[in-house]
Amino acid sequence: MPQPSLIQFQNVAKVYHMGDVEVHALRGVTLAIEQGEFTAIMGASGSGKSTLMNIVGLLDRPTGGAYLLEGEPVSTLSTERLAEVRNRTIGFVFQSFNLLSRTSALENVELPLLYAGIGSAERRRRATASLERVDLGSRADHHPNQMSGGQQQRVAIARALVTEPRVILADEPTGNLDSRTSVEVMKLFQELGNGGITVVLVTHEPDIAQYASRVIHMRDGRVLSDERQEPKIAVVPPWTQGDEEDPP
């Protein structure tokens, strides 16, 4: 028996009711994402890509079809169970970082472990390791407002990685970053993919999508195209004048 796909959508539909109007955000999406794939989802706003992400991330439930995560149907789980699965299996990276202000990088990274019920010594150890993985081991006690945008996004990635999830969901992670730091983040995602972590990225920038190994285009709640490609290798250019980040 073949290993089931990590993420499996079977004719998934999502209908919102806004007053009397029905909004079809997803009109039957069927796709499968395998472990270690680096998938970019593209599409104009209103194409359904955000809804797709929310359903993949267990923040939303489909109104039709089935969603299987690690082979298990998850659409019918209770809110509490969803929170547990989310905590264990999925890491989120957002466009606006969503770090807690006036809270150190280390404590921000520890946050998901807090809800996993892990003791403070173990939390500290794992959060430190996760920060080192994104090359921010030395900034553990810095607060978000003492860090550049690129550094903040790397803290957010460390936070997503700290529970050792199988899937990282990144919603426009480079939207607030300059091109150089964007490449840094893409490089990090490619490394994660090589390490067996599945990365699903929502973006509207073709430049960013070319670092992925698979690109799915969405339009009007349907998959328009779904292509595998040879990813462009992310190479961080050397420091140039006017970069956002100060050279180390």
Partner: peptide, 11 residues
């Protein structure tokens, strides 16, 4: 919202 996304239950 963030706390919920990273695994906080409503409780």
């Amino acid at each position: 919202g963030l706390r919920m996304a990273v695994g906080a239950k409503p409780a």
